[in-house]
Design a protein around this nucleic acid. Structure first.
Length: 481
DNA sequence: TGAAATGTTGGGGCG
DNA sequence: ACGCCCCAACATTTC
């Protein structure tokens, strides 16, 4: 009897999972394998916490649906797969594709190696609506601006439907002497994760539940509410998407069915708002696709600016300022609230991500790579593609970037998007008693809260300094030409 | 998915 | 009644 190995990575689900489906079609003996390789992929503590529970959830659903366990290993994937294949005599090795430069290189080698040994090795698309190789502009080049990219994607043909999980009982095969989940050492040694468990439910079921809740209510007013961090207006699907607990196809299918069914309702007015909101939401899925497009075609961008002239930007070095930023002690309430939300829950509202990123890069003039690294280290949805796009956007050095002169005013952003201070009050409790008038500028109070720091930099001063620095950059650039 | 500076308009207070 | 000024509200431009 033939044997297949499914190598799970960031596709931790069983529905709409082409590698699993292919293996089940080929064989009644399948080993489901996950290899924890911190040497290849450094995950922050929040992401590790998530991964632990996501693996637990995957293990449970594999057992329930197929009657077999998830087998866990630790080390270099090539070596571990070699061992597994010789022990199991597997003929088929399947996985879902990843798109970051290092992993692509590693996986290509592994594929070539086992093909040479006579195995059928296949990789599948399990995480993108439009893989980077499918999309190019008229001159055959990758897109660098979102709108034309997304227009092109939407015009490039219908999006495939998500497929349900195949249900089938597999032949129990001898386990490959795997580790226990605890042996992977993904959980934190210090117990800081209590808040995480209150906020998140990692795993495929948690993802489906999150999507269902979002589509039932919040999606209707997504286009406006998604900007208000004090309101639960966003889907919070990002960590589920990152670990592949849900596919964009599944999200696409269920969301577009709302768009299509809202046309013949009697409440035409209300439904057209909902329809627009659903489209705005799907556009955000499009931004994720765009991020993978850029990472694939411009593999240097996690470390270096896409626009080369930014390499010479006169960044400041200030350990103290960076630390104040990470700890949520900059003296600007909306910035500090965001950084503290991140620290407590491993997540930050997107509006606030833009504000804190702009603050680090433009007010403090600290290089975006440092902010990007902090985000990767602390976010549960830490994703190289999306994170790179976001930070390059904020610094003005990337594709479709914010112009250099676009500097967020942290006071105005707070007043505009957190007008009643609900978000600040939640995450910066020492300001909870302030009136709406002062909640975003507590330093103007006669006796401002003693425990809360004064602004580490004056806004007007910082704005001028940033504009000067960016002007210098443009000067350098024109002198070179 | 920007903010600040500058320009324009028009209502209303007031001599 | 009229001209003048102030200023809020909105529009445009500039960074």
């Amino acid at each position: 009897m033939s044997t297949a190995i499914v190598w799970f990575r960031r596709d931790l689900r069983i529905a709409d999972q082409p590698a699993v489906r292919a293996a089940l079609e080929k064989s009644d003996k399948v080993h489901f394998v996950f290899i924890w390789s911190p040497e290849d992929e450094s995950l922050g503590s929040a992401s590790r916490w998530w991964l632990h529970y996501s693996l637990l959830a995957l293990h449970q659903s594999l057992e329930k649906t197929y009657g077999v366990q998830l087998e866990l290993f630790r080390g270099k994937p090539a070596a571990i797969l070699e061992d597994l294949i010789s022990k199991s005599q597997a003929q088929f090795l399947y996985w879902s594709r990843l798109y970051d430069p290092q992993t692509r290189k590693r996986d290509e080698k592994i594929k070539e190696h086992f093909k040479k040994k006579g195995l059928e090795v296949k990789s599948f698309n399990a995480s993108l609506l439009f893989e980077p190789t499918m999309i190019a502009n008229k001159s055959g080049k990758p897109f660098q601006v979102f709108s034309p990219f997304w227009r092109h994607c939407l015009a490039s043909g219908p999006i495939e439907s998500a497929r349900a999980a195949v249900s089938k009982k597999l032949v129990a095969s001898k386990s490959l002497s795997s580790l226990s989940l605890r042996d992977l050492g993904l959980l934190p040694k210090i117990k800081w994760d209590k808040k995480m468990a209150e906020v998140w439910r990692p795993g495929e079921l948690g993802a489906q539940e999150r999507l269902a809740v979002f589509l039932k209510a919040a999606v209707k007013s997504y286009s406006t509410d998604r900007n208000i961090p004090g309101v639960e207006g966003s889907s919070r699907l990002s960590p589920h998407l990152h670990f592949g607990e849900i596919s964009p196809h599944q999200i696409w299918n269920s969301t577009s069915s709302i768009i299509n069914s809202s046309g013949n309702s009697s409440r035409v007015r209300a439904s057209s708002v909902a329809k627009n909101s659903a489209e705005v939401f799907l556009r955000e899925i499009g931004w994720r696709e765009f991020a993978y497009h850029l990472l694939y075609h411009f593999p240097h961008t996690p470390d270096e600016p896409l626009r080369a002239e930014f390499k010479k930007f006169p960044w400041r070095k200030s350990k103290e300022d960076f630390e104040a930023w990470t700890k949520g002690r900059t003296g600007y309430p909306i910035v500090d609230a965001g950084m503290r939300e991140l620290w407590a829950t491993g997540w930050m509202h997107n509006r606030v991500r833009m504000v804190v990123a702009s603050f680090l890069v433009k007010h403090l003039l600290i290089e975006w790579q440092k902010g990007a690294a902090w985000f990767l280290d602390t976010l549960v949805d830490a994703d190289l593609a999306s994170n790179t796009l976001g930070w390059q956007w904020a610094s003005g050095s990337g594709a479709d970037a914010a112009p250099y002169f676009r500097i967020f005013n942290p006071i105005l952003q707070g007043e505009k998007f957190d007008p009643d201070g609900a978000y600040v009050r939640r995450w910066v409790p020492e300001l909870a008693d302030l009136s709406n008038k002062f909640i975003h500028k507590p330093w103007l109070l006669e006796n401002s809260p003693a425990l809360y720091p004064a602004p580490i930099v004056d806004h007007a001063f910082a704005r001028k300094r940033a504009l000067q620095a960016f002007a210098q950059l443009r000067l350098n650039d024109s002198l070179l030409q």
